[in-house]
Every structure is written in C-alpha cells, then in structure tokens.
Design a binder for these strands. Structure first.
Lengths: 228, 228
DNA sequence: ATCTGGTTTTGACATCGATCAAATCTGTAG
DNA sequence: CTACAGATTTGATCGATGTCAAAACCAGAT
C-alpha cells in the first residue's frame, strides 16, 4: 500500500510538481516539503480518513480520484468534493482545526502524496515561499468551493452539466468532443446530483445537440450550449 | 461615506481586533496592516463591488451585514454568503485572481474595514505573522464554505434551520431563547432558501417546540431539536 | 463469442422547495 | 395612537430532483 517516494511514476511526479503547493517552490523549500511527504497507493473504494479522526496529514492526488463526503442522520451520503489529480484536500486543517470534517475515500485506484500536517506547519513558519504556496493553494480552493455553492444555488441540473462540459471544451463555437476522465457516478457527485439526475440532464441536453456514448460526449455546437 | 479610521466606534474597533486577520498580529505588523486599511460606512443596499470589476481591495465587516451574490442568466439572484461582523470577504483574491467573482452589497447600515489588496500582498511577503494570519483566515473561511456545500446537499430546509438555531443555543438540553441578529430575509439567503421556504421551515419546527415571534426564537427542548 | 458483475438509463412516483399572489404582521414616523 | 411601508406568512400551484425498482448497456474475464 505505502511506498517511499522514489517509486513515483513519471506522470505522478509531473502532477506533483504542478500542484499549487510545490510548483512555485525553490530548490531548498521543495526538498524540505518532499522530505515530509510520503506516497501512498490505494485501490478503489478504500478509506483514506474518516470524519472525526485526528487530522495528522493532508493529501494531494497524483493519479486517480478521491471522494470527500459526509453522511446525514439516515446514513445517506452526499459528496462534498471530488478531487482530481493535482487537487489537495484537508489542507484547510493546517491552521483550522485538529479533526477531519468529512470522510475521504478513493473512487478509483489512486496514488496520493501525503504531507505530515505538523511538519508542514513548521515549514510554513520557517520558509516564506512555503507559506506563500499554502496561501495560493487555499485561495484557489476557496474560490472553487464558493463557485460550487453558487453553481448549486443558481443552476439547474442541465445547466450544471452544460457548464461542466463547457469548461473542458475548446473555446471556439463549433462542434467538439470530449472524454470523461471518470465514471458518471463521480461526475454526478461533483455536480451535487444523484446519478439518475445526471443521466436525465444528459438526455435533456440531447435537444441542444449533445450526444453521449459511454464516456464520450459530443457537442454539436459549443455556442448553443452556452445559451442553456 | 468614507471615514478615516480614528472615527471607529469602540464596538467596531473591538470587532476589528478579533478578526482572524488582525487578532494574532504583533504590534508592528498590526500597525502596518492598519496603515493600509481604511474604514467605510454605507447605508442599506449599497453596492460594495460588482462581479467582474477589478479586485483592488478586500474587506472585513465591522458592523452590519454584507450579502455576496451572483445572478443567473434570467436575472435571478442567489446569495452565496452572508457576511457578519468579523467576517472577511474577497480575501481569496489576494493570490487567486484579479477580478471580483460575485456582487457584494450591504444588507443593513454597515461599517467595513477596507484593505488594499496589493499592499497586503506586499506585507504578507515581508511579515511572517501577516502571512500566517492570511492562512488562518483562508483556512477558516474554506472550512465554513465546505460546510455550506455539505449543508446544502445533505439537509432539508427544516434541518438547516434547526442547525442554525442550535449553533446559537447554549449547549445544554433544556429550553432556550435566541434573538436573530438580522432580518429573516438574510437568514434565508444564508441557508440557501427562498424567504417563503424559511417561513415554512419555521412553521414545520413548531411541531418540535420552536416558537417564532418577530426576531425572537424560543426553543422548548434543545435536545429534541437535535434529533430533527 | 459469451458470461457476468457493475454501471447507466429509464420509468413511476413522492417530495421538496420555488414562484406568484394575496393576506397579515411589525416597526417606525408622524 | 394611527398610518404606512416594508417584512413575513400563508395559500395554491408547478417544476425539479431524489428514490426505488427494473431494464439495458458495457467491459473485462473466461
């Protein structure tokens, strides 16, 4: 399950270096961050941590996907966030609390970089550029989370799906084709929808020239999709 | 409208000092932060900034309330966040972008501390404790925003209202009485509800021993409310 | 090529919350 | 105390989405 970091694949290493956390660091700070990091590989549907546990690490997804979720009183699960390669999670506990606030589990075979919370806290105090990296990461994360609230409150299911598609389409107005990087299940969670609702949203979008076959989504007219 | 900062009331000054941004700062850093700050007083329903404008400042609410919201294509408004005294907003743009991502307007007569974005950016680079204060503020803010997503996705309207009430109740299980610090309108926006839905949620909670008269909410049994 | 388990779609239905309109309440200024 | 404007509640209705069950689809293993 747990590997030391020289086991990193090239692809994983590239993702790691592009993380907001590491991408701006100078050689020395980078070394120090990597020294408090370990690499973990997990198969699908493995728990990373559970709500209420002591928060002694935060993570960065290198490959695969991670689902952050909470349970309500009846045991129904709701996804709060789906983390893709390059995303960091639980880093808000660096200065914000001592217990995890939600469950985290893999949603595919996944490789993670694990950062010891206390060690990074100490590093951020010492190295200016590490503090800055923390700030950048938190800022970005906060913005996408606020966007998520706005999206939930403002848009219907087909609109959310259209938005998602548009964010991965070439910018021009013509036809386009994209491939989902994961199961529809996950996309549903990302958009705050039940899987059935996602499916129905896709079929609503057929009227707007969106064709779905497996993981491949074809858009007849990107511009038309914007109007939804 | 705009005052220099020696016009601060005692109460506003106390709020300002308890802000995550300033509360932990040493004398020198505190001085420098205050030197890039100005105080602004606005009456109800005044725009503070608009989506898409150049983000050259972030703000801390000293008294009153601020509504952050976006518009959808049909012009319907949805609140993203209601900021209370002590809350900071738009600070995620310190390192996260150059334009405001939503509208901000006062929801009452309001006093704000305004921080020049570029100046704080520079200060955070120089003073370690200012960087740390930024991190703390962002962390807290990120956590509450994630809680907001979870709350929206997981709980029904009466549950959200019950949650809200519980967060301002004494912890024990007996009866309690609280007073809303603002109009129900704002509470609705905070919970992601239409005002009518909030009203109906209150009337659902009557069955659980919650009585509402104007801004005063009486809870027969705090423990019972937790079970909702 | 076929089987098999898991994923996705479809159908039927129940529920929640939004919307619009009208009635009622509240607080404030005369 | 009264009147008024604004806030809140209530009623009626509608649309969107969750839920459960069953059918269809798909991909990997044999």
């Amino acid at each position: 399950m747990m590997n030391s970091n020289f086991k990193l694949s090239n692809r994983d290493r590239a993702v790691l270096m592009k993380t907001p956390f590491l991408t701006s660091l100078s050689g020395n700070s980078l070394m120090r961050m990597i020294s408090v990091m370990s690499v973990i590989s997990l198969t699908n549907r493995k728990s990373i941590f559970r709500e209420g546990e002591n928060a002694d690490a935060f993570y960065c997804v290198l490959s695969g996907y991670v689902r952050l979720y909470q349970l309500n009183r009846d045991g129904r699960e709701a996804d709060i966030r789906i983390c893709s390669p390059g995303d960091t999670f639980a880093e808000c506990l660096l200065y914000g609390g001592t217990k995890y606030r939600y469950h985290a589990q893999t949603a595919e075979a996944t490789t993670l970089a694990r950062f010891d919370m206390q060690a990074v806290r100490d590093l951020a105090e010492q190295e200016r550029d590490i503090a800055k990296a923390v700030i950048t990461s938190l800022s970005k994360h906060l913005m996408t989370t606020m966007d998520c609230v706005a999206n939930d409150r403002l848009h219907t299911a087909p609109q959310r799906v259209a938005n998602y598609i548009l964010t991965r389409c070439p910018v021009d107005g013509g036809p386009a084709s994209i491939r989902l990087p994961f199961q529809k299940n996950l996309l549903a969670g990302m958009l705050g929808l039940a899987p059935e609702a996602l499916s129905r949203a896709f079929s609503t979008l057929r009227r707007t020239g969106v064709t779905v076959r497996g993981r491949v989504i074809q858009v007849g007219d990107v511009q038309a999709l914007r109007e939804i």
